[in-house]
Amino acid sequence: MTRRQIALVACAVAAVTTGLGAAPPTTPEASAASRNVHRVKPGESIQKAVDAAKPGDSIVLAPGTYRESVTITTSDLTLRGSTVFPTVIVPGKAATGACAEAGHGICVTGTAQRPVEDVTVRSLTLRNFTRNGLWASRTDRLTVRGVTAEKNGNWGIAQERSVRSVLTGNTARDNGDAGLFVSNTTDTEEGAVDAKGTLISHNRLSGNRIGLTVRRLRNVTVDRNEATGNCAAVFVVGDESTPRAGAMSLRRNHIHDNNKYCPKTPRLPFLQGSGIVLTGAEETLVAENRIEDNRGTSPLSGGIVLFKSFVGALNERNEIRDNVVLRNGTADLANRDTGKGNTFRGNTCEVSEPAGMC
Rank of each mutant, 00 (worst) to 15 (best):
R4H: 12
I6C: 08
A7S: 13
C11F: 10
A12K: 03
A15T: 07
G21P: 00
T26W: 06
T26V: 15
N36D: 10
N36R: 15
H38D: 01
K41N: 12
P42R: 01
S45N: 06
K48S: 15
P55T: 05
S58N: 09
I59E: 02
G64M: 07
T65S: 09
S69P: 04
S69L: 09
T71G: 07
T73K: 14
L77W: 03
A102Q: 11
I106V: 15
V108L: 01
T109R: 14
R114C: 00
V121T: 00
T130L: 11
N132R: 12
L134G: 04
R141L: 03
R141A: 10
T143N: 08
R145T: 15
V147R: 08
V147A: 09
T148C: 07
K151S: 13
Q159C: 11
E160Y: 02
E160M: 02
E160R: 07
L167H: 01
T171D: 11
R173W: 03
G176H: 05
A178R: 02
G179W: 02
V182R: 02
V182M: 09
T188Y: 07
E190N: 11
D194S: 08
G197V: 03
G197C: 06
R204L: 12
L205Q: 06
N208I: 03
R218I: 03
R218H: 03
N230V: 06
V234C: 01
P243A: 10
P243W: 07
S249H: 13
H254C: 07
H254P: 02
I255W: 00
D257T: 15
N259A: 02
T279K: 13
G280A: 04
A281T: 15
E283Y: 12
E283L: 10
E288M: 11
R295L: 10
G302Q: 01
I304V: 14
L306K: 00
E316R: 12
V325H: 00
A334R: 12
N335P: 00
N335T: 07
D337E: 05
T338I: 12
R345N: 05
C349P: 05
E350T: 15
A355D: 13
